[in-house]
Amino acid sequence: MLVLLPPSETKSAGGSGAPLDLGGLSHPELTGTRRRLVDALSTLADDVPASLDALGLSERQVEEVQRNAELWDAPTAPALERYTGVLYDALDVQSLSAVERKQADARLAVASALFGIVRGTDAIPAYRLSGGSSLPGVGTLRSVWRPVLEPVLAAADDLVVDLRSGAYAALAKIPGAVSVRVLSEDATGKRKVVSHHNKAHKGKLARALAQAPDEPESVDDILAVAGEAGLQVEREADRALCVVVRA
């Protein structure tokens, strides 16, 4: 099973790993594109105003540009510890047992604007780049990633659970993936799409799938694991699920 998580704009600082080694990341067929983007992003950081504009940042976020300037030299950390925010708080990999953490590293991956896709143990530095960005001399990330990333994801033999947000789903389509959305239900039974807390509930589902002793191999398995974890997950279509949250 492959559970594909969205990244987060926020990243943990520092790390204890050696500087970025693209050759050591999973999916080496993406190395050329990764190198092109890391070089472009770190070079862009030499021009702070241009970086702020391209990345959609304010002057108060100039430290994010500094992170990009240090991409090749900064310390690294495992991907599942690098990303932070609501989803990753709910996932809470630090509290997993040793066995569960090994399962999480094997089953979970993160969609990345800079690296395409990273596995749990891939050592990466902190950076700032969003899926909807366009880099000078490179173009939109969608135009860069789709030709190279779609074949990689299409070749996945495992059950794929796609938890990505829109901007990252646009970087590569995944035929046959199981999609998941989050709905809130009020006392009358009326349902609506959850936006603000959507990531937290996806994080809880990802945690449950990582913790499952037996790796889920079907949509029915996902539903069973979610139910055992106390989550209300329903099938909306053959390959579409929804997490229902009481308002």
Rank of each mutant, 00 (worst) to 15 (best):
A18P: 12
L20T: 03
L22I: 12
G23K: 00
L25N: 03
P28Y: 04
E29K: 06
L30N: 08
L30K: 06
T31I: 11
T31P: 11
T33Q: 15
T33A: 14
L37K: 09
L37S: 11
L37F: 04
L41E: 07
L41H: 03
S42H: 01
T43G: 14
T43N: 13
L44R: 03
A45R: 09
A45I: 10
A45N: 01
D47Q: 06
D47T: 02
D47F: 02
A50E: 09
D53V: 14
A54R: 12
L55I: 10
L55P: 07
G56V: 08
S58V: 08
R60M: 09
Q61M: 14
R67H: 15
N68V: 12
L71P: 07
L71C: 10
P75C: 05
T76H: 13
A77K: 05
P78G: 00
A79M: 10
E81S: 12
R82G: 00
V86R: 04
V86W: 03
L87E: 14
L87V: 05
Y88N: 01
Y88Q: 04
D89H: 05
A90W: 10
A90T: 00
L91H: 01
V93K: 04
L96T: 14
L96W: 10
A98P: 13
Q103M: 12
A104M: 10
A104S: 04
D105R: 15
D105M: 05
A106E: 15
A106F: 07
S112Y: 10
S112T: 14
S112H: 10
A113I: 10
F115D: 07
F115E: 02
F115A: 09
I117G: 07
I117R: 05
V118P: 15
G120N: 01
D122C: 01
D122S: 11
A123G: 10
P125Q: 10
P125D: 04
P125L: 04
P125E: 09
A126R: 13
S130D: 11
G131C: 00
G131R: 08
S133P: 14
S133H: 13
S134A: 13
G137N: 12
G137D: 12
G139K: 02
G139L: 05
G139H: 00
T140Q: 05
T140D: 00
R142S: 07
R142I: 13
V148E: 14
L149Y: 11
L149E: 07
V152Q: 04
V152H: 02
L153C: 07
A154C: 06
A154Q: 15
